[in-house]
Computed example of a mutant assay.
Amino acid sequence: MVIVHSQAPVILVGGAPIEKEILFQALDLGDQVVAADSGALAVLDAGRVPDAVIGDFDSLPEDHRAAIPAERLHYVPEQDSTDFEKCLTRIDAPLVIAIGFSGARLDHELAVFSTLLRIDTPPCVILRGAELAFIAPPQLRLDLPVGSNLSFFPLAPVTVTTSGVKWPLTDALMRPGGLTSSSNIVTGPVALECDTRAVLVTLPAASVASVMQALAGPTASPA
């Protein structure tokens, strides 16, 4: 059941540690702010009340819960999915920018990427400190500064063609434990084509505006 509807990007905040400056920058990228359970603490600490809090509330203290209007609290008790998945599957938006889902525990971060591999709507960008990551659609075009670092990492077997990078690929079979394309360098407009949605792209976080436009169109780009 969809809980959050938006015509603009939605910011999704998790409970992993977040530098406040980075959180403020992220909050400016979207319209509504959704917290995954204890992610509400960071949002409240930044001086904003989440538009929705979704989760099983196992890590949201009662005093913080009391600071949020009851109609914005959405309790989802089932334990078959993570709070990240509970949130992502209940958001209807052109794009989700997620922060606070990396750095605390490796298993949690791996679970996030596993969820992104299974769920393609809405598209989601993970901000993780100075980097960002997302699952590429079958066709991707990015306008990035020449010299930028980027990586293509397969989460499942996938045939890939890339251009606009120092080490391009043509109909190359990539797979976990096999061929990857890490620490590549932008040489021009970047293009990626793949036969299935299984390539994790990592870039500097400064490229977020270009990524937002590529994944959700011009209206999704921050002002």
Rank of each mutant, 00 (worst) to 15 (best):
D28S: 15
L144A: 04
R118A: 11
I185M: 09
A40P: 00
V49T: 04
L23T: 13
A206H: 09
R197A: 12
P222H: 14
E62A: 10
M1Y: 07
E109D: 13
R141K: 12
G129R: 03
V96P: 08
S59H: 03
S163R: 15
F101W: 01
D31F: 02
K166E: 10
G47A: 08
S182C: 15
I22W: 12
D143M: 03
G129P: 06
Q139D: 10
V112H: 03
F84P: 11
A206G: 13
T170F: 01
Y75K: 00
S6E: 02
V199K: 01
R197G: 05
K20N: 04
S183H: 07
L144W: 12
L155V: 04
E71S: 12
V34F: 02
F152K: 05
A223H: 11
K166Y: 02
E21H: 10
T219H: 14
A223R: 12
N184H: 00
A198E: 09
V158E: 13
A67N: 10
N149P: 02
A156K: 13
V13C: 01
L12I: 10
P17N: 06
L44M: 15
V165E: 11
Q79S: 01
V2A: 04
P122W: 01
S114T: 05
Q7A: 15
L29H: 02
S221Y: 01
L12A: 14
T180I: 15
G164Q: 09
S81C: 04
I18Y: 01
V112Q: 04
P9A: 10
A93C: 06
C87H: 09
T161I: 11
S102I: 14
T159L: 08
V208P: 09
A40S: 04
V76F: 08
L140C: 03
P218D: 12
F153Y: 15
A172K: 14
E193C: 03
G164A: 08
S207Y: 06
G188L: 10
S38L: 03
S221D: 05
D143S: 13
I97C: 14
L110W: 14
H64N: 08
A216C: 11
L44C: 15
V10P: 14
A172M: 15
T89L: 00
P9I: 10
D37A: 09
I91Q: 07
E85P: 06
E109T: 15
S182I: 15
T196P: 03
V10A: 05
A111I: 11
L142Q: 04
A133C: 09
V165T: 10
L106W: 11
V43G: 03
F134G: 04
R128P: 08
T162H: 06
L88V: 11
S183C: 13
P157Q: 07
V49S: 00
F153V: 15
D143G: 01
V49F: 00
G177S: 01
L132G: 04
A111N: 07
I135S: 05
S182G: 12
S210E: 15
L88W: 06
D80F: 12
L155N: 09
P189C: 11
S163K: 11
M212S: 14
I185W: 05
L155Q: 04
G177I: 09
A104K: 03
I18R: 03
P94A: 11
F57S: 01
A133K: 08
G15T: 01
V96I: 12
P138W: 03
L117A: 14
D143Y: 02
V190T: 07
V53N: 05
R197Y: 00
P176N: 13
L132S: 09
M212I: 12
F57D: 00
